[in-house]
Every structure is written in C-alpha cells, then in structure tokens.
C-alpha cells in the first residue's frame, strides 16, 4: 500500500492499523500524538486532502491516493509556517502536546476562511483540547496568523 505523506510516497504494510500508528511507528512522523484515542482531543490531527481529521479514527487503508500532511510538512527550508510563527509570537502553547494538532487545524481553517471571526475560530478549533489552558493565546495566534497570511 502506498501512502502519499508530505509530498513523498511511502510503501507501508498497514493491516488494520490507524493512520496515526502508521505515521508514528512506520514513518517516524511523531508530531501527531494520541491524546484520547476517540477523536475528542485533536492531538492526532492530520490533514487529508487539506481537511483536518483524527489520525486515531482513520484506518491507514482508507487513505491511499489521498494527500496526507502532517505538522512535519509545514516548515520549509528552515522557515516556519506563518501559523507556527504566530503560535510562538503569541505564546500559544505550554506543554505543547496539543500544539501540532492546533496548528494544523488553524492552517486548514485559514485555507478555508482567510478572515475568520473569533467565533469562527472558536467553532473550528473547539475539537482541539489544551489541558494547560492556552486557549486565549491560541485565539490571538490564529487571528495574527490570518493577518499575516492575507
């Protein structure tokens, strides 16, 4: 089975493992992590054809032929993605276990809606949980990233 991950083709033996397990265990892409295992927390968020999904609720077998992007794809030539930079500038993380998931969700949101209201952001990111409680700064970071991307 061939997976297209971050622009490269990878041959994997997935069985009925989840996309998250294959990314982490076979491809060494460990930015996505299991938090809750039931699609509630978003720590395992990855983009499939540009849309955020839960890596823990997707079987790898479901996604051959689709374009899979993980947090590892965002930085290019030593240059952080504007959303990543905004997360640093606005201090939008503490333990950062949830951060890659938030950033990928924000990237997808800003692709869909380049000028979201705060309510739009809350709505879109509401399925990403941050136990440290960095939500206020996450909101600011996404607003700021939106400005920089426009």
């Amino acid at each position: 089975m061939i997976l297209n991950v971050n622009g490269s083709r990878h041959e994997v033996e997935a069985g009925t493992r989840t996309l998250l397990e294959v990314l982490r265990d076979d491809l060494g892409l460990v930015g996505a992590k299991e938090g809750c295992g039931i699609g509630m927390c978003g720590a395992c968020t990855v983009l499939v054809d540009g849309k955020p999904i839960s890596g823990c609720l997707t079987l790898a077998e479901q996604v051959p032929g689709k374009e899979i992007l993980t947090i590892e794809s965002l930085e290019k030539n030593g240059q952080l993605h504007p959303v990543q930079q905004a997360f640093i500038d606005e201090r939008a993380f503490q333990c950062a276990y949830c951060t890659p998931g938030f950033i990928l969700s924000a990237v997808a949101l800003l692709n869909e809606n380049p000028n979201p209201s705060e309510d739009d952001i809350r709505e879109y990111l509401s399925g990403n949980l941050c136990r440290c409680g960095s939500y206020q700064n996450i909101l600011k970071a996404v607003v700021e990233a939106g400005k920089r991307l426009r």
Partner: peptide, 9 residues
C-alpha cells in the same frame, strides 16, 4: 455534530 474532524470524516 462533534467536531470539524469528525464531520470531515
């Protein structure tokens, strides 16, 4: 329904 990830899937 649930969250945007679930709705995408």
């Amino acid at each position: 329904v649930a969250n945007v990830r679930v709705r995408n899937q």
